[in-house]
Amino acid sequence: MNKNEGMISCAVGCWLVALLGGVLAAMLLMVLGGWTFMQGVFMGVVVFVVAGALLSWIICKPLPAAGEASIEQAKPADAAKPAAQAAAPVAATSTAAAAEPEIKPSTPLPGEADLAERKGEWKYEAEPKAKEKPKAKKAAKKPAAKKATKSKAETPASAAGEGTKPQTLSAARDGGPDNLKEIKGVGPKLEALLHSMGFYHFDQVASWGADEVAWVDQNLQGFKGRVSRDDWVSQAKILAEGGETEFSKKVGKGDVY
């Protein structure tokens, strides 16, 4: 039996087995499943076709012969031989070339002796680098001259904003103190503070200059700046001469305090 006959007999056997399976499937569906005759036949045909195709493809697939397999395995080895044979002459050529001694001319060439004598005398020298200019030393920073400042003792009191303390009295003169509340800006509390500082009369306030005004402005605790802001000196001059101001008239009538 040759190869083709074997494949045909295998296929016939597979289709017979598939036919038997289709008939069996149709009978089981009709008996146990309650299918009709047509339904059972149709399903049997489907089983027959599918099973026959699968069995033929799986079981009857041709296998390579033993001789062919050995030939295919031998092919890579045979293909490697020409490459090895081609590499051998190349290696032999390189080895022979390395073994050959260097051939020197028997007759000296013209000028060879002159070149041999000069050999080693000439050398390349780089151009000397230009000398770097010494960096100019940074000029030492001179300490900034401190601005001359006058000490507190040397500065006039008026320049420092403290002013000069006016002349004070330890108590009011005979006849009692003047009513300093007639000066606009002086209330009962401020009048008591002025008394404690030694100021009781209009003429004292009228005699104050700029330095005295600055001193009093700075030392009126809780009322700083009231002297210059309300112009006490001008009012005190009028009142010290026996005159009256609009504000002093209201004070005299009792309209203010």
Rank of each mutant, 00 (worst) to 15 (best):
E100T: 08
A97E: 15
A87Q: 04
A65V: 00
E72L: 06
A65C: 00
A77W: 15
S70G: 09
A74R: 05
Q73C: 07
E100R: 12
P82M: 06
S94M: 11
A69Q: 14
A92V: 13
P89Y: 01
I71T: 10
G67A: 07
A99C: 04
K81L: 08
A86P: 09
A97T: 15
I71Y: 10
A91F: 00
A88T: 02
A79F: 09
A66K: 14
A97K: 13
P76V: 05
S94G: 05
V90P: 04
E72M: 00
A66Q: 10
Q85V: 11
A97Y: 12
C60E: 02
A99E: 00
K75N: 05
A98V: 06
S70H: 02
T95N: 12
P62Q: 01
A66R: 11
L63P: 04
A97I: 15
A99Q: 00
P62D: 01
A74I: 02
P82V: 14
G67Q: 02
E100Y: 06
I71P: 02
E100D: 06
T95G: 08
G67D: 07
P76A: 02
A80Q: 09
P82F: 11
A66D: 10
I59K: 01
E68L: 13
S94E: 14
A65R: 07
A80W: 07
Q85A: 15
Q85R: 13
A92D: 15
D78L: 12
P82R: 11
K81D: 00
L63I: 12
K75Y: 02
A97V: 13
D78H: 07
A84N: 14
P64E: 13
A88S: 01
A88P: 00
A79W: 08
A74F: 06
P82D: 08
I58D: 03
Q85P: 03
P64Q: 12
E100F: 06
A74M: 05
P62G: 00
G67M: 01
A83V: 15
I58P: 00
A65H: 04
A80K: 10
V90K: 09
K61F: 05
S94C: 04
D78P: 04
T93L: 14
T93H: 10
E100A: 15
L63H: 09
K61N: 07
T95L: 14
I58G: 01
T95M: 08
A83N: 12
K81Y: 09
L63K: 12
K61V: 05
A66F: 07
S94Y: 08
A80Y: 05
E68F: 09
